[in-house]
Amino acid sequence: MIRLPLILLFSTFLFSVGIYGVLARRNAVMVLMAIELMLNAVNLNLIGFSAALQDVSGQIFALFVIAVAAAEVGIGLAIVILLFRNRASINVDEADLLKW
């Protein structure tokens, strides 16, 4: 048995690291990797609560999150490749056409 707060702390740490990655890195692929870390922190919470509450639903939700994350990475990398083809750069600060 693993106590729930330990799992919650680990997942909170991973989420904060993901936030740092999204805010500090400017490479689009690195930003996507940091988003993956944050999604995994959410999964960890779902699994931890599923074990603590003896309810299998949390694990089903974690499976759905994994599937949606796979779709997100596929689309995200396609957009990054398109961005690189059109602009020859994957700096997320330069992709500001819709900003103003």
Binding site: T12, F15, V17, I19, Y20, V22, L23, A24
Partner: peptide, 23 residues
Amino acid sequence: LDHLPQNRIVGGVVSVLVFLGLA
């Protein structure tokens, strides 16, 4: 691409605050 120290400072502050608050 990552030669912007102000991004790193802001990101570090925000992530530490989020960690402390959530934890």
